[in-house]
Design a protein around this nucleic acid. Structure first.
Lengths: 203, 203
DNA sequence: GCATAAAATGGAACACGTTCCACTACGTTT
DNA sequence: AAACGTAGTGGAACGTGTTCCATTTTATGC
């Protein structure tokens, strides 16, 4: 009984199980990318991952868990990639806007995928806390990293910085939802984020 | 053919239609209040409103439209009530926090209702733009009103003010979602909002 | 009043998330 | 190698949002 909760546990189980989990997340990714939230149907995911429906549910107890886990993987990748290099910009605001715009560009390139993952994130309840936390940490890490123009030294990372990062993350999430649901355009979203960041980070 | 889109149209139709619409929204409210999002089942709403299922769908084309419309009614009421009186507090931050706390208290008193309405709001797509807009306007109005400590004179209401109100609204929404989905407590939410508002409004 | 169009009704039917179950395959222990 | 427990399978079944349709009721124009 090594995988009590395969979606969050550190213990990833046997090679076969890791393989299955990967196939499932890959199938989720593909379906989300081509058809958005609605296209990620549990039967379709199971079929494309070559796994029985029951098995899918053993690995991920709901569609929301599945999608939020996929989102977590995306964010961790993005965070790792961004943390590799230094962030250009002379002020905190400039650097934060740089990474936000970069992320926005990535998301606009895959609108269906973004829609699916954002929807899931917004719909998640407390049973998805662990998966959500992964995403929240990645987001905070990305913003604080940008604020400091490099990997944040734990010394210089104040409470205040984290609070700021969270507020920016909140605004970003709201803007993202508005964009994903077709209530605002990409350009409006960009303008809004720009205003918000300058409001919060007046270096 | 007077009600092409009864949920958003200004033309509210005949008395019988207005009456039906009200019964439906009341039923939605009751069900949401006692059982949250999941309890607002279309068959249940129809039955409680004493209306056929098909009729319910004629008035509100989806569960989301229904719930967001109910949310709009709530917000308009709240906005109207708040705009009646002056807001106590010496600084913008104090006044804004005053109204946000007031609203938070109201929502915490009806957690199921809040959960249902917030969920719907987060899940709404572009087909619900009109209903969403009602909510957004009410929110902005509440915040700008608080910032100015009274009904905002259109003269003194700058672009900047509106941008600030929107950012605060965004943070508030994110915080609300976190609370509603059980990912943060009421106390944490309050603290977070306090920090955010002081960050944004440094009078 | 009557004819006609619009709205409402009751209920069947469909789609997809989720649950459940009987059965099979696989790996571990002895 | 046999027995046992866990994971996986295939598929039926259920709940709820949504659609559809035949029929009845209500409203409107003449």
């Amino acid at each position: 009984m090594s995988i009590a909760n395969p979606s969050t546990s550190e213990d990833l189980g046997s090679a076969a199980q890791r393989e299955r989990r990967k196939r499932i997340l890959d199938a989720t990714y593909e379906l989300a990318k081509s058809g958005g939230f609605d296209a990620v149907q549990m039967r379709a995911v199971a079929e494309q991952a070559d796994v029985a429906l029951g098995t899918l549910y053993r690995y991920f107890p709901s569609k929301i868990h599945l999608l939020v886990s996929a989102l977590g993987r995306q964010f961790e990748d993005a965070s790792a990639r961004l943390n590799e290099r230094d962030i250009p910009g002379d002020t905190q605001a400039e650097r934060v806007l740089y990474v936000l715009k970069r992320m926005a560009r990535g998301m606009q390139g895959d609108p269906k995928l973004t829609e699916a993952l954002t929807r899931a994130f917004m719909f998640a309840d407390s049973s998805v806390t662990n998966e959500i936390h992964v995403v929240g940490m990645a987001m905070t890490s990305i913003v604080t990293h940008a604020m400091h123009g490099g990997v944040p030294d734990p010394e210089t990372l104040t409470e205040e910085d984290v609070a700021i990062a969270r507020v920016i993350g909140d605004v970003w999430l709201s803007a993202l939802v508005a964009w994903v649901t077709g209530r605002s355009t990409a350009a409006e979203t960009a303008t809004h984020m720009e205003k918000a960041v300058h409001l919060i980070l007046r270096d």
